[in-house]
Protein backbone atom coordinates (compact mmCIF):
# COMPACT_ATOMS: atom_id res chain seq x y z
CA UNK A 1 0.00 0.00 0.00
CA UNK A 2 1.36 3.39 -0.98
CA UNK A 3 1.86 5.93 1.84
CA UNK A 4 1.01 8.78 -0.56
CA UNK A 5 -2.57 9.87 -1.26
CA UNK A 6 -4.22 7.89 -4.02
CA UNK A 7 -6.43 8.98 -6.89
CA UNK A 8 -7.58 5.57 -8.10
CA UNK A 9 -7.07 1.96 -7.12
CA UNK A 10 -8.14 -1.37 -8.51
CA UNK A 11 -8.78 -4.48 -6.47
CA UNK A 12 -8.77 -7.97 -7.99
CA UNK A 13 -9.78 -6.44 -11.31
CA UNK A 14 -10.30 -8.95 -14.12
CA UNK A 15 -11.45 -8.72 -17.71
CA UNK A 16 -11.62 -11.20 -20.55
CA UNK A 17 -12.49 -11.03 -24.25
CA UNK A 18 -14.12 -14.39 -24.89
CA UNK A 19 -11.45 -16.98 -24.12
CA UNK A 20 -8.63 -14.44 -23.85
CA UNK A 21 -7.94 -13.26 -20.30
CA UNK A 22 -6.80 -9.66 -20.74
CA UNK A 23 -6.51 -8.74 -17.03
CA UNK A 24 -6.32 -11.11 -14.10
CA UNK A 25 -6.93 -10.11 -10.45
CA UNK A 26 -5.09 -6.83 -10.81
CA UNK A 27 -4.35 -4.73 -7.72
CA UNK A 28 -3.08 -1.32 -8.76
CA UNK A 29 -2.78 2.10 -7.14
CA UNK A 30 -2.56 5.39 -8.99
CA UNK A 31 -0.81 7.99 -6.84
CA UNK A 32 -2.40 11.43 -6.71
CA UNK A 33 -0.43 14.32 -8.25
CA UNK A 34 2.20 12.03 -9.77
CA UNK A 35 3.24 10.85 -13.21
CA UNK A 36 2.13 7.20 -12.95
CA UNK A 37 3.64 4.98 -15.62
CA UNK A 38 1.99 1.83 -16.82
CA UNK A 39 4.54 -0.34 -18.61
CA UNK A 40 4.19 -3.53 -20.53
CA UNK A 41 4.78 -5.18 -23.86
CA UNK A 42 2.10 -5.25 -26.54
CA UNK A 43 -0.79 -7.42 -25.38
CA UNK A 44 0.09 -7.04 -21.68
CA UNK A 45 -3.38 -5.63 -20.91
CA UNK A 46 -2.52 -1.92 -20.77
CA UNK A 47 -5.24 -0.78 -23.17
CA UNK A 48 -7.85 -2.94 -21.46
CA UNK A 49 -6.98 -1.43 -18.08
CA UNK A 50 -7.05 1.99 -19.73
CA UNK A 51 -10.54 1.38 -21.16
CA UNK A 52 -11.78 0.14 -17.79
CA UNK A 53 -10.47 3.23 -15.99
CA UNK A 54 -11.94 5.52 -18.68
CA UNK A 55 -15.33 3.90 -18.18
CA UNK A 56 -15.47 2.47 -21.71
CA UNK A 57 -15.55 -1.10 -20.39
CA UNK A 58 -17.37 -2.42 -17.35
CA UNK A 59 -15.34 -4.52 -14.90
CA UNK A 60 -16.32 -8.20 -15.09
CA UNK A 61 -14.74 -8.94 -11.70
CA UNK A 62 -13.14 -6.86 -8.99
CA UNK A 63 -13.43 -3.20 -8.16
CA UNK A 64 -12.25 0.23 -9.21
CA UNK A 65 -12.06 2.60 -6.25
CA UNK A 66 -11.86 6.35 -6.72
CA UNK A 67 -10.61 8.84 -4.09
CA UNK A 68 -12.07 11.90 -5.78
CA UNK A 69 -12.61 13.93 -2.59
CA UNK A 70 -10.19 11.97 -0.47
CA UNK A 71 -12.85 9.41 0.44
CA UNK A 72 -12.89 6.02 -1.29
CA UNK A 73 -15.93 5.21 -3.42
CA UNK A 74 -16.43 2.25 -5.68
CA UNK A 75 -16.91 3.07 -9.36
CA UNK A 76 -19.55 0.66 -10.55
CA UNK A 77 -20.31 2.96 -13.45
CA UNK A 78 -18.27 6.12 -14.01
CA UNK A 79 -20.14 8.96 -12.34
CA UNK A 80 -20.62 12.37 -13.92
CA UNK A 81 -18.32 13.78 -11.23
CA UNK A 82 -15.59 11.27 -12.10
CA UNK A 83 -15.83 11.87 -15.85
CA UNK A 84 -15.83 15.65 -15.33
CA UNK A 85 -12.41 15.32 -13.71
CA UNK A 86 -11.05 13.00 -16.38
CA UNK A 87 -8.99 13.98 -19.43
CA UNK A 88 -8.16 11.28 -21.96
CA UNK A 89 -5.70 10.98 -24.82
CA UNK A 90 -6.27 7.81 -26.80
CA UNK A 91 -3.65 5.88 -28.69
CA UNK A 92 -5.37 6.55 -32.03
CA UNK A 93 -5.92 10.19 -32.91
CA UNK A 94 -9.50 11.22 -32.19
CA UNK A 95 -9.20 14.71 -33.68
CA UNK A 96 -11.50 15.57 -36.55
CA UNK A 97 -9.13 16.27 -39.45
CA UNK A 98 -11.70 18.36 -41.34
CA UNK A 99 -12.11 20.83 -38.48
CA UNK A 100 -9.63 23.42 -37.22
CA UNK A 101 -7.66 23.07 -33.99
CA UNK A 102 -9.96 25.57 -32.28
CA UNK A 103 -13.13 23.84 -33.50
CA UNK A 104 -11.88 20.49 -32.23
CA UNK A 105 -11.13 21.95 -28.82
CA UNK A 106 -14.44 23.82 -28.64
CA UNK A 107 -16.31 20.61 -29.43
CA UNK A 108 -14.57 18.84 -26.58
CA UNK A 109 -15.25 21.75 -24.22
CA UNK A 110 -18.94 21.60 -25.18
CA UNK A 111 -19.01 17.86 -24.44
CA UNK A 112 -17.79 18.81 -20.97
CA UNK A 113 -20.62 21.33 -20.65
CA UNK A 114 -18.28 24.36 -20.58
CA UNK A 115 -19.66 27.82 -21.37
CA UNK A 116 -18.30 29.06 -24.72
CA UNK A 117 -16.43 32.07 -23.27
CA UNK A 118 -14.79 30.05 -20.50
CA UNK A 119 -13.91 27.42 -23.09
CA UNK A 120 -12.25 29.95 -25.37
CA UNK A 121 -10.18 31.35 -22.49
CA UNK A 122 -9.08 27.88 -21.43
CA UNK A 123 -8.29 26.86 -25.02
CA UNK A 124 -6.04 29.89 -25.38
CA UNK A 125 -4.21 29.11 -22.12
CA UNK A 126 -3.69 25.43 -22.96
CA UNK A 127 -2.56 26.07 -26.53
CA UNK A 128 -0.17 28.81 -25.41
CA UNK A 129 1.35 26.46 -22.84
CA UNK A 130 2.01 23.98 -25.61
CA UNK A 131 3.14 26.74 -28.02
CA UNK A 132 0.36 26.02 -30.48
CA UNK A 133 -1.90 29.05 -30.18
CA UNK A 134 -0.75 30.33 -33.58
CA UNK A 135 -2.23 27.15 -35.14
CA UNK A 136 -5.69 27.78 -33.64
CA UNK A 137 -7.43 28.23 -37.01
CA UNK A 138 -5.43 25.67 -38.96
CA UNK A 139 -7.21 22.50 -40.07
CA UNK A 140 -5.97 19.53 -38.07
CA UNK A 141 -5.01 17.64 -41.24
CA UNK A 142 -2.27 20.23 -41.90
CA UNK A 143 -0.50 19.48 -38.58
CA UNK A 144 2.37 17.03 -38.21
CA UNK A 145 2.18 14.03 -35.85
CA UNK A 146 3.87 15.79 -32.92
CA UNK A 147 1.61 18.83 -33.17
CA UNK A 148 -1.48 16.65 -33.37
CA UNK A 149 -0.45 14.92 -30.16
CA UNK A 150 0.08 18.26 -28.45
CA UNK A 151 -3.35 19.41 -29.61
CA UNK A 152 -4.85 16.23 -28.15
CA UNK A 153 -3.12 16.88 -24.81
CA UNK A 154 -4.33 20.49 -24.85
CA UNK A 155 -7.83 19.25 -25.61
CA UNK A 156 -7.76 16.74 -22.75
CA UNK A 157 -6.76 19.54 -20.35
CA UNK A 158 -9.20 22.22 -21.57
CA UNK A 159 -11.76 21.45 -18.87
CA UNK A 160 -9.03 21.46 -16.17
CA UNK A 161 -9.34 17.81 -15.08
CA UNK A 162 -7.59 16.41 -12.01
CA UNK A 163 -6.72 13.16 -13.75
CA UNK A 164 -5.19 12.76 -17.21
CA UNK A 165 -4.92 9.37 -18.89
CA UNK A 166 -2.76 8.85 -21.97
CA UNK A 167 -2.66 5.58 -23.90
CA UNK A 168 0.73 5.21 -25.63
CA UNK A 169 0.64 8.86 -26.73
CA UNK A 170 4.19 8.92 -28.09
CA UNK A 171 3.90 6.08 -30.59
CA UNK A 172 5.35 7.25 -33.90
CA UNK A 173 6.89 10.43 -32.49
CA UNK A 174 10.57 11.37 -32.58
CA UNK A 175 12.71 11.36 -29.43
CA UNK A 176 12.74 15.17 -29.02
CA UNK A 177 8.95 15.43 -29.16
CA UNK A 178 8.58 12.52 -26.73
CA UNK A 179 10.93 14.18 -24.25
CA UNK A 180 9.12 17.51 -24.57
CA UNK A 181 5.75 15.90 -23.88
CA UNK A 182 6.88 13.90 -20.85
CA UNK A 183 8.73 16.93 -19.44
CA UNK A 184 5.62 19.07 -19.90
CA UNK A 185 3.39 16.62 -18.07
CA UNK A 186 5.90 16.04 -15.27
CA UNK A 187 5.88 19.80 -14.76
CA UNK A 188 2.05 19.90 -14.68
CA UNK A 189 2.12 17.19 -12.01
CA UNK A 190 4.59 19.12 -9.89
CA UNK A 191 3.12 22.60 -10.28
CA UNK A 192 -0.60 21.90 -10.51
CA UNK A 193 -1.03 18.55 -8.79
CA UNK A 194 -2.29 16.86 -11.95
CA UNK A 195 -2.49 13.08 -11.67
CA UNK A 196 -1.23 11.40 -14.84
CA UNK A 197 -1.53 7.81 -16.01
CA UNK A 198 0.97 7.35 -18.84
CA UNK A 199 0.69 4.05 -20.65
CA UNK A 200 3.74 3.10 -22.64
CA UNK A 201 6.17 0.42 -23.64
CA UNK A 202 9.01 2.94 -24.07
CA UNK A 203 11.05 2.85 -20.88
CA UNK A 204 13.08 6.00 -21.55
CA UNK A 205 9.94 8.04 -20.88
CA UNK A 206 9.95 7.11 -17.18
CA UNK A 207 11.77 9.16 -14.52
CA UNK A 208 13.35 7.52 -11.44
CA UNK A 209 10.82 8.98 -9.02
CA UNK A 210 7.75 7.97 -11.08
CA UNK A 211 5.43 5.26 -9.70
CA UNK A 212 5.54 2.37 -12.13
CA UNK A 213 3.43 -0.71 -12.72
CA UNK A 214 4.79 -3.40 -15.02
CA UNK A 215 2.02 -5.47 -16.51
CA UNK A 216 2.66 -8.83 -18.07
CA UNK A 217 -0.02 -11.06 -19.55
CA UNK A 218 -2.72 -9.21 -17.67
CA UNK A 219 -1.04 -9.47 -14.28
CA UNK A 220 0.99 -7.04 -12.16
CA UNK A 221 4.64 -8.13 -12.20
CA UNK A 222 6.29 -5.22 -10.38
CA UNK A 223 4.92 -2.09 -8.71
CA UNK A 224 6.62 0.84 -6.98
CA UNK A 225 8.69 3.87 -7.89
CA UNK A 226 11.13 3.28 -10.68
CA UNK A 227 14.12 3.77 -8.29
CA UNK A 228 12.70 1.30 -5.74
CA UNK A 229 12.01 -1.32 -8.38
CA UNK A 230 15.57 -1.16 -9.64
CA UNK A 231 16.91 -1.37 -6.08
CA UNK A 232 14.64 -4.30 -5.14
CA UNK A 233 15.30 -6.36 -8.24
CA UNK A 234 18.94 -5.46 -8.77
CA UNK A 235 18.27 -4.59 -12.38
CA UNK A 236 20.48 -1.95 -13.98
CA UNK A 237 17.57 -0.26 -15.68
CA UNK A 238 13.91 -0.76 -16.58
CA UNK A 239 14.86 -2.34 -19.88
CA UNK A 240 16.69 -5.14 -18.10
CA UNK A 241 13.79 -5.54 -15.68
CA UNK A 242 11.31 -5.85 -18.53
CA UNK A 243 13.53 -8.38 -20.29
CA UNK A 244 13.76 -10.45 -17.09
CA UNK A 245 9.98 -10.33 -16.70
CA UNK A 246 9.50 -11.56 -20.24
CA UNK A 247 12.12 -14.33 -19.98
CA UNK A 248 10.84 -15.55 -16.59
CA UNK A 249 7.40 -15.82 -18.10
CA UNK A 250 8.72 -17.75 -21.09
CA UNK A 251 10.29 -20.32 -18.73
CA UNK A 252 7.01 -20.90 -16.88
CA UNK A 253 5.36 -24.20 -17.81
CA UNK A 254 2.36 -23.67 -20.08
CA UNK A 255 -0.86 -25.05 -18.60
Amino acid sequence: MSDKPLYLATSQLSYRYGAKQALHNLDYQIVKGQFNALLGANGAGKSTLFSLLAGLLKPQQGQIICYLNGKPSQLKRPSREYLAQLGVVFQQSTLDPDLSVGQNLLYHAALQGMAPKAAQRSIQVELERLQLFDRLNDPVRTLNGGHKRRVEIARALVHQPQFLMLDEPTVGLDLDTRQQLTAYLHERCQTQGLTVLWTTHLIEEIALEDPVLILHQGQAQHAGTCANLLAQTGANDLKQLLQRTASNSAQEPKL
Binding site: A54, G55, L56, R80, E81, L83, A84, L86, V88, F90, T94, H108, L111, Q112, G113
Partner: peptide, 8 residues
Protein backbone atom coordinates in the same frame (compact mmCIF):
# COMPACT_ATOMS: atom_id res chain seq x y z
CA UNK B 1 -14.56 6.98 -27.35
CA UNK B 2 -14.10 10.73 -27.04
CA UNK B 3 -17.85 11.28 -27.14
CA UNK B 4 -18.35 8.57 -24.54
CA UNK B 5 -15.94 10.07 -22.02
CA UNK B 6 -18.21 13.10 -21.74
CA UNK B 7 -19.90 13.35 -18.33
CA UNK B 8 -23.30 13.53 -20.09
Amino acid sequence: KLLLTSPA
